[in-house]
């Protein structure tokens, strides 16, 4: 540990922490983009026309199984020179679209699992009660589909936070970018990069514990409710 220098540590810390706002802001922006776009994938995936369904599935699979880093480079470096539709985007917007799009395919799977988790009897009951499509979704399916997905969605927020430093490669000035700048300027990488690691750990570890607790609570609540419902049915 002879090469560790506390002076460098305290010199770099205030500089790097300035990027925390950008990093957290980008996380939230990417996350909202992914939540909204994931919804579109879920809807598009339910189109009952076979060829369209097929194309959508393959596009999703393509986005999901190729590296987000390459997707970022494509959007930032290559998109501006695409004929007719290309526009130059600033690094932040590129990162929101790139990472948001990548994770929207994962989020859409979460939505799908939520919808498919609703018992088939619920669908049949809605049909038997002659509910309209809107009533069926708003009153029966979604209220049951959304709550179980909340912990999973929370997990993706943490995953997103840890993926956001990828955006430093296209010039988003978050904490990793500032640490690299510091390293390049003074040729000290050890302390700045350690600061970045500590900041990530300090922010993501407690959130992970929180999500875990939430998940346990959710499970408890829903299991209890099920039991309650069953006993009710038996009494009648």
């Amino acid at each position: 540990m002879s090469n560790w220098d506390w002076e460098v540590f305290f010199d770099a810390f205030p500089m790097i922490i300035q990027g925390l706002g950008i990093t957290v802001g980008l996380t939230i922006a990417c996350y909202i983009f992914a939540l909204i776009f994931g919804f579109f994938w879920t809807v598009a995936d339910r189109i009952p026309i076979k060829p369209i369904h097929w194309v959508i599935r393959w596009i999703m699979e393509f986005i999901r199984s190729t590296p987000p880093l390459v997707q970022l480079f494509f959007i930032f470096y290559a998109w501006p020179v695409v004929p007719y539709v290309g526009v130059a985007l600033d690094p932040f917007t590129s990162a929101v679209i790139g990472l948001g799009l990548h994770y929207s395919t994962y989020i859409s799977e979460v939505y799908r699992s939520g919808i498919e988790g609703v018992a088939p009897g619920q669908w049949e009951a809605s049909t038997a009660l002659n509910l309209s499509t809107k009533q069926k979704w708003m009153k029966v399916i979604l209220p049951q589909a959304i709550p179980p997905t909340i912990p999973m969605l929370g997990n993706y927020l943490i995953i997103m936070f840890k993926e956001v430093p990828l955006a430093s490669t296209i010039g988003v000035v978050g904490i990793l970018h500032l640490a690299n700048d510091y390293g390049a300027q003074y040729w000290r990488y050890l302390e700045p990069l350690t600061i970045v690691a500590i900041l990530f750990l300090v922010l993501s570890y407690p959130s992970a514990i929180l999500i875990n607790k939430l998940e346990k609570k959710m499970n408890q609540r829903f299991n209890k409710k099920d039991v309650l419902e069953e006993t009710k049915g038996a009494a009648i």
């Binding site: 540990m1 002879s2 090469n3 560790w4 840890k162 993926e163 956001v164 430093p165 990828l166 430093s168 990793l176 690299n180 390293g183 000290r188 990488y189 050890l190 990069l193 350690t194 970045v196 690691a197 990530f200 750990l201 993501s204 570890y205 992970a208």
Partner: peptide, 24 residues
């Protein structure tokens, strides 16, 4: 917990740039 709590890209840079400085 450390490796799950931080980003892969940070870990990669740390191993590549910081380890040589830390241990010489």
């Amino acid at each position: 917990e450390v490796f799950r709590g931080t980003s892969l890209i940070v870990q990669l840079f740390w191993l590549y740039y910081a380890i040589p400085m830390l241990f010489g």
